[in-house]
């Protein structure tokens, strides 16, 4: 683990065989089952009251309650003690779902993985794929031991402007050490066809949507380099790493701030986002066509494999 220790060689001391075994255990069928369940819940739940939000029609199709319940129930079924980080501020209350596996030797150092559980329409890619990824990691980590505490978080109301994660990060005790945070947002859509990937101005042009984007800031550059090194040494799915300057708040880097990792960056905590790039690839983004059958199970599994190896390495394990 190299958070805050840039001089250390990348992947120093990694148990590559253990990380390989962990990554291999990621189950594509379970991931897709999770996506289908979550999408069905989003599709059947009564959406949030959108009175006063008349700028975009999709705001009248935002749901979150049933997905929150499913996330909590699944984590409890895996044996985790689940808590809620509830806030009341302004027109919307938020509730983060939080579960932890205490670290064996460094329990005060936390490695966090999270995804927002609110979604427009069925929200298969955005963000049932991310929530399903968190639950799959929780399943894999539940039977293994790590040096550091591993925390699984479901963020609320990301779609209304990162509301839940901003409140969650603001509520973290200053003395709590987040060694690394990993956020999933849209991790299931891939398209290898030429022309399927859009690159914003100032970013390297890519024509095919067949990679996972790993987005970091200067604060989390060590973690991004470790993800990349693990990708290479374990032959995981191709990744492109994008590192924003400083805390990411530069105007021309704004495209890299659009998910729940951003509040971590702004608080100076190391965080990495994994994404299929959402609107820059997925034509169903924020539409009623964002359904499970549009996702690529192998790609989704590949992203979660990369996350599993990275998270385990940061957590110091598996032991």
């Amino acid at each position: 683990m190299a958070a805050g220790c840039r001089q250390r060689p990348v992947l120093d001391g990694a148990d590559l065989a253990g990380l390989r075994e962990l990554a291999d255990a990621v189950d594509a069928d379970l991931l897709m089952d999770g996506v289908r369940e979550l999408s069905a819940l989003h599709g059947s739940e009564a959406p949030l009251d959108c009175t006063g939000f008349d700028l975009a029609e999709r705001l009248c199709h935002l749901t979150h309650l049933d997905a929150r319940t499913l996330m909590r129930d699944r984590l409890e079924a895996l044996g985790y003690q689940v808590s809620a980080f509830d806030t009341e501020d302004g027109p919307f209350s938020t509730s983060a779902v939080v579960a932890e596996k205490r670290g064996a030797s460094l329990p005060d150092e936390v490695v966090l993985v999270g995804a927002h559980y609110d979604a427009f329409y069925e929200g298969a890619d955005d963000n049932s794929s991310g929530v399903s990824g968190v639950l799959e990691l929780a399943r894999l980590f539940s039977s293994r031991t790590f040096d550091r505490t591993v925390r699984f978080v479901g963020f609320d109301l990301e779609e209304l402007g990162l509301v839940g994660s901003i409140r969650y990060v603001a509520g973290l005790p200053r003395e709590e050490r987040i060694a690394a945070a990993l956020v999933f947002d849209c991790i299931g859509y891939a398209d290898p066809a030429p022309g399927s990937q859009i690159s914003p101005p100032g970013f390297p042009p890519r024509d095919t949507g067949d990679f996972v984007a790993v987005i970091a800031s200067d604060t989390s550059l060590p973690q991004a380099l470790e993800v990349r090194a693990l990708t290479d040494v374990l032959s995981l799915i191709p990744s492109i790493t994008l590192v924003a300057p400083a805390d990411g708040a530069a105007p021309l880097a704004g495209n890299l701030m659009h998910s729940d990792h951003a509040p971590f960056w702004l608080e100076g905590r190391p965080a990495v986002l994994m994404t299929d790039t959402a609107i820059f690839r997925n034509p169903h983004y924020h539409r009623d066509t964002d359904t499970p059958e549009t996702l690529d199970p192998a790609f989704l599994r590949g992203v979660v494999q990369t996350a599993a190896a990275s998270l385990a390495y940061w957590a110091g394990g598996p032991r």
């Binding site: 100032g202 970013f203 390297p204 990679f211 200067d218 550059l221 991004a224 380099l225 990349r228 191709p238 990744s239 492109i240 790493t241 994008l242 590192v243 924003a244 300057p245 400083a246 530069a250 021309l252 880097a253």
Partner: peptide
């Protein structure tokens, strides 16, 4: 100074 950094495959 600061920069956007990219690591491609």
């Amino acid at each position: 100074g600061d920069q956007l950094t990219f690591l491609l495959p």
